[in-house]
Amino acid sequence: MKPSMHFSAAALACALLAGSPFVAGTAQAQRSSQTTQLRVTGFDVEQVDRIEPGAELNFTVWGTAGAVVLLQIDGGRRTVRLDEATPGRYQGSYIIGRSDRIGPESRVHANLRQNNRVATAMLGEALQVGWPVPGDTAAHAPEIQSVGVVREPGRGRADALRYTVRGTPGAQVSVQLRGSQSRNVVLDEVRAGEYVGTYVLPQGDWVDTEQPLVAQLRVGNRTVQSSVPNAYAGVNFRARRADNFASCQDCATVQAVNEVVVDGEGRVLGTVAGGVLGAVVGSQFGKGDGRTAAGVAGAVGGALLGREIQKRHNQRTQYEVIVRMNDGVQRSVVYAEPPAFRVGEQVRVVGDTLERYAR
């Protein structure tokens, strides 16, 4: 009978253990904790037309109910906490401040936390309408799609050029202006991927319409350029390059190139070395022969003669270029070294020097 009694007791113990409410609940909790995973099932933002101070970004996150959801925006100064509006749906907003550095391409991360577990997700769309998905390296590869230039009306007598470049959004874009002055014109992004800039040509300046128009687009440390030949073919300039010289206020034609001798005070003595001193002394005393001049010079103790000898000792050669401006006025420009200008050549007067007029 003992074996039989032992079997009955074991069977009773198993029956009691299987029917115990506490043990059953513990096992069920263990199975629930293993099957229930903390996760984010959805992440959305109401895109705005422009990222700027005062713009409100409204976010929605879907996921495990009963959790705490925090958002971190790249360039933002504070963390956003979303409220659980309905079980498993969390909502909140962020108003962009002046101290924020949030851009259309800023990434947004969501952290859904429950007890000691955390699930994370990244927003899969841009904050601004029309921008590519943040982190999409293929979309951010620098690309220039088109380059154009037109003459902008309403600028009076001056020529104003409006440049337009279309390409990768969120870039730094410029065009190279070639002509009387070489410069880079920086364009502003007026819409996603559309860059516009206007340059007003100062009076007398011109653009070399025969050169290709070069645009540059930079994203991060990557740069791409596009060279467009004949970009100015359809631009209706008020004064084209062929007519620029006649209308140029700073332009002139070389009339003469003279080699001159000046004394120590910079006064022109002439081009013939011999007789210069005699001419200077003679001019001091009017008419008379050499004996009269010598007598007078002796009477003044030779002081004047000494000064003239000193000036002659310090004399040097300069080069004077005489030009006739387009308005008929003559001007002279002095060089210490022989200039490379010829009579009849067209030049521009820039300050105290001359530049060849580029055709």
Results as ranks from 00 to 15, higher is better:
H6P: 02
A9K: 04
A9L: 12
A10N: 08
A15W: 09
P21Q: 04
F22D: 07
V23G: 02
Q28T: 10
Q28Y: 12
S32T: 14
V40E: 00
D44L: 07
R50S: 11
R50I: 01
E56I: 10
N58R: 07
F59K: 01
A67M: 02
Q72R: 03
R78H: 06
V80A: 03
R81H: 11
L82M: 07
D83P: 01
E84F: 08
T86Q: 13
G88Q: 11
R89A: 12
Y90S: 01
Q91E: 15
S93A: 15
I96L: 04
I102Q: 07
G103W: 01
P104V: 09
P104W: 03
N115H: 08
T120C: 03
T120Q: 06
G124A: 10
Q128L: 09
V129G: 01
G135K: 03
I144F: 13
S146V: 04
V149T: 06
R151V: 10
R151Q: 13
G154E: 05
R157I: 04
A158L: 15
V175K: 04
Q176D: 11
R178W: 04
V186G: 01
V190C: 00
R191P: 00
A192M: 01
Y199L: 03
D205F: 12
V207Y: 06
D208H: 12
T209H: 05
P212S: 06
L213I: 15
Q216S: 08
L217V: 01
G220F: 03
N221V: 13
R222F: 06
T223V: 14
A233R: 15
F237S: 13
A239V: 14
A239M: 13
R240K: 10
N244H: 11
F245P: 09
A246V: 14
C248M: 11
Q249L: 10
D250A: 09
C251K: 06
T253M: 03
V257A: 11
V257K: 11
V260R: 08
V262F: 10
G264V: 12
V280P: 00
G286A: 03
K287N: 05
A293Q: 07
G295M: 08
G301C: 02
G306K: 08
I309Q: 11
K311M: 15
Q315Y: 07
N326Y: 02
R331C: 00
P339K: 05
V347S: 02
T353H: 12
Y357M: 09
A358H: 13
